[in-house]
Amino acid sequence: MRKILVLFAHPKLEQSKANLALINAIKDLEGVTFRDLYELYPDFNIHVNEEKKILALHDIIVWHHPFYWYSCPPLLKQWIDLVLEYNWAYGPNGRALWDKTCFNVITTGGSKELYCSSGSNHYSVAEFLRPFEQTAILCGMDYLSPFTVMGTHRVEAIDLNAYAEKYRALLEEMMRVPDLAYFKTTNFLSEITLPNQ
């Protein structure tokens, strides 16, 4: 059984129906460690050693956050800046994260159609996520495509429960299967077909 670490960052969870639905579906799963960063570090003073210890205990790292200005909220960036230390996460002796797997779970207000060369955001989500992808690669991790919930501005138009279910099923499957190769075959983890569905 693989272990999954979900690093969740949302500065105002109270007002996010989409993220509440998503995290409620996975936070109590066995084998999943759910870390609500804004609840743990409201003063941004991240406990680096503790974060490193926890990272070492997991096989899959999930950066779960709303997509603000084509990136993550500042506390997650702070986490990346502080925890991924030179010669620990990367650099000549930095092997702590080698062979782990990593991906983003994001919610966007705008719908998927807006994220393409002809849409108002011009670029695809995958392109916007390049910094995260390269960060993962530099740390020797396998970076997977993102799990996306898009168009949350029209939240009644999308089936949040379906997304939440899918999120849970995905994490369960990832913990269970012997090989993660299958998850590299898709552009959106949120659209992958899972065997028991």
């Binding site: 105002k12 207000g109 501005h153 029209r154």
Partner: peptide, 16 residues
Amino acid sequence: KLWDSDEMRSAALAKQ
């Protein structure tokens, strides 16, 4: 009112 997407949401709905 920071990070509040209500306004954006209602604007999106109106557009729809």
